[in-house]
Nucleic acid binder design. Structure first.
Lengths: 203, 203
DNA sequence: CGTTGTTTTGAGATATGTCAACAGGGGTGG
DNA sequence: CCACCCCTGTTGACATATCTCAAAACAACG
């Protein structure tokens, strides 16, 4: 079933909306992100993908991806043939459920991002995104007591949150001054979870 | 398989996140909407649902709905047992595909809403939402040359778009003055598609 | 005709955007 | 090892889209 291992460098495009839905990847190492690009260059980052996530889940449903998927860091992927993988998965109850779970988790996450962007002010959006990412990373063992690799730069965050890079910066700066987190050189360390949770809830 | 016909009045709750995933509805008549409610009363409307849409698709995957689903108008629903319906659907290729298509269409729509709210200014958001709804309504035969029943009030639109009702009003007002649409008493009439499309694209 | 909910409008406040300059770090080539 | 460059982060002054709050007009409805 596995078709091989592929590597991508930062910024490289892994999958496009116009690609045929013939391939699925699984992230072995590195981060990627999926974004919808508008005609004039604006883009909405719809999701960040971390090791263990699938890229091109929609291929399993015969659909091309919604957005463009690009590598955020040097990335190692396992490559599968969509048809092969699908028949493998739907052969067993476990497989079907795993696929369904992944699809739904993805949709749920997007709905929550929509809620963040639609209803929260800048500080709440940043806090909510960081907490959501930390939770996902922790489940997979990539976060140690709130400290983890965090490759997105402030422009990525801005595009994910519907903010401006400058404003993301001010917001992170403020969090740092309040002692809520440390952040430099691609590492994030969340110091005060409960305070960030409060901000995510109230702002 | 069908368990019965149910009716709901405006504002009534059809399904809650804490409900067990045992039921699926299909809208026979009327509109509903699904929204995520925050602790302090803010809410994000995630999707509007029109006749032909399913409510509680996630029940088929053993999951409770992401948000609260409420009736927007007097609504008539067909009610199904989730397990029965699932076994019916996955029995045939057609059924499986229909289910997958519905699930994916829903997720795709949410991703586009996220893009609207994250990247567009008020006029672009309103235009994009109206056009998306008109397209869905037209496919099902509920829009005649851009004219259709439109039950959401400006507060619903505001909650869907991450805007304030006052601002939705000003935006609609402006569209009307420009002759792009007519809108009163629960009816919408889109007069200038290409201009609205331009606004959706550029704003 | 009151009542209730929605739309419309205004004046003023503010969160966020814009733009531009500067700083720092890390790589690269000389 | 230095000089340079590029990318990202940081900061400031200023602009503005959108919000807030509140009042009034309007419409639907019993």
């Amino acid at each position: 079933m596995r078709r091989g291992i592929v590597q991508f460098r930062p910024h490289q495009t892994i999958m496009r909306p116009e690609d045929p839905p013939s391939i699925v990847y699984t992230i072995y190492e590195g981060w990627a992100y999926s974004g919808i690009v508008l005609g004039d260059g604006r883009r909405q980052i719809v999701s960040f993908m971390i090791p263990g996530d699938s890229i091109g889940l929609l291929s399993l449903y015969g659909k091309s991806p919604i957005g463009t998927v690009r590598a955020l860091t040097p990335t190692t992927l396992c490559m599968f043939d969509a048809n092969d993988m699908k028949s493998q998965l739907i052969a067993t109850d476990q497989g079907r459920e795993a696929l369904e779970r992944a699809t739904i988790a993805c949709a749920t996450e997007i709905a929550h991002r929509l809620t963040d962007v639609g209803q929260r002010r800048a500080s709440g959006r940043v806090a909510a995104l960081l907490l959501a990412l930390e939770a996902r990373l922790r489940k997979r063992g990539y976060s140690e007591r709130g400290a983890f690799e965090f490759p997105p730069n402030q422009e990525h965050l801005a595009d994910a949150l519907g903010l401006t890079p400058a404003h993301v910066n001010r917001t992170l700066m403020q969090f740092r001054k309040l002692g809520l987190l440390e952040h430099s050189k691609g590492r994030m360390h969340i110091l005060d979870f409960s305070q960030l949770q409060r901000i995510a809830r109230e702002d």
